[in-house]
């Protein structure tokens, strides 16, 4: 079972995760009427920028983060922003039934917008496959929140100088996630391992992201 301290930490991280999300005025625009490829490009970049801003706010709330070396803070955020963004998107696209009809329609519109944004098909397909594979895990909001925090606090990112300090922040969260998985998915003893596997998969998107942006800009 989770100790009281772990329960409090989980609650705190979940609250921040729920609080710091892309503002409605940005998502609203994204879900309004269809527009051309150029407008799609601008809207999606605006959304990505907004995502990074709220991600930083969420990260600042992670216990111990603000005490890290300032350049290490930037290295951690730079290294994880793309992965955190894919995780958020996965949460949107993997929503399972019962699905409100309006929500279903919105995620279809969003998928359509991404598919017609000028991003090459070879990058789009693995992305939606990933969303599907995340959906199969039927993750609770707590798992998304912890997984995002764990991704941000990865000690092995490039340019991180004080890796042990980052490790000390990440480890307690891994413990909580492992326990939470056992409690929440008693029928799947491999659930925690599967989540960590998705993190590895996320890293490949990080690598492809620069190529993807390049192809997008050229298109």
């Amino acid at each position: 079972e989770l100790t009281q301290e772990q329960q409090d930490l989980l609650r705190y991280i979940l609250d921040s995760f729920i609080k710091y999300r892309i503002p409605q005025e940005v998502t609203k625009k994204l879900l309004q009427e269809r527009c051309n490829a150029e407008e799609n490009f601008l809207l999606l970049t605006e959304t990505a920028t907004s995502h990074v801003q709220v991600l930083v706010e969420f990260t600042k709330k992670l216990p111990g983060f603000q005490a890290l070396d300032h350049e290490d803070q930037i290295a951690l955020l730079k290294g994880s922003a793309v992965e955190a963004m894919f995780l958020r998107s996965a949460q949107i696209f993997s929503k399972k039934i019962p699905h409100e009809q309006s929500e279903q329609k919105q995620s279809e519109l969003l998928e359509d917008r991404i598919r017609h944004s000028g991003i090459a098909e070879e990058y789009i397909t693995p992305m939606f496959n990933f969303y599907r594979s995340i959906g199969e895990l039927k993750m609770a909001q707590e798992e998304y929140a912890l997984l995002t925090a764990i991704t941000i606090l990865s000690p092995d990112r490039s340019y991180v100088k004080h890796r042990e300090a980052v490790e000390r922040l990440q480890e307690p969260l891994l413990d909580i996630l492992q326990k939470y998985c056992k409690l929440n998915h008693p029928d799947d003893p491999q659930h925690f391992a599967r989540l960590l596997g998705r993190l590895t998969e996320l890293r490949t998107f990080n690598h492809h992201h620069a190529d993807m942006l390049m192809s997008w800009r050229i298109n």
Binding site: L42, T45, E46, T49, V52, Q53, V56, E57, K60, H70, Q73, I74, L77, K78, A81
Partner: peptide, 21 residues
């Protein structure tokens, strides 16, 4: 516009609490 800023610029500004420039 923000969309012309690099990722690191956006992160640095957000860490300092500056959103709008």
């Amino acid at each position: 516009p923000a969309s012309n800023l690099g990722l690191e610029d956006i992160i640095r500004k957000a860490l300092m609490g500056k959103y709008d420039d």
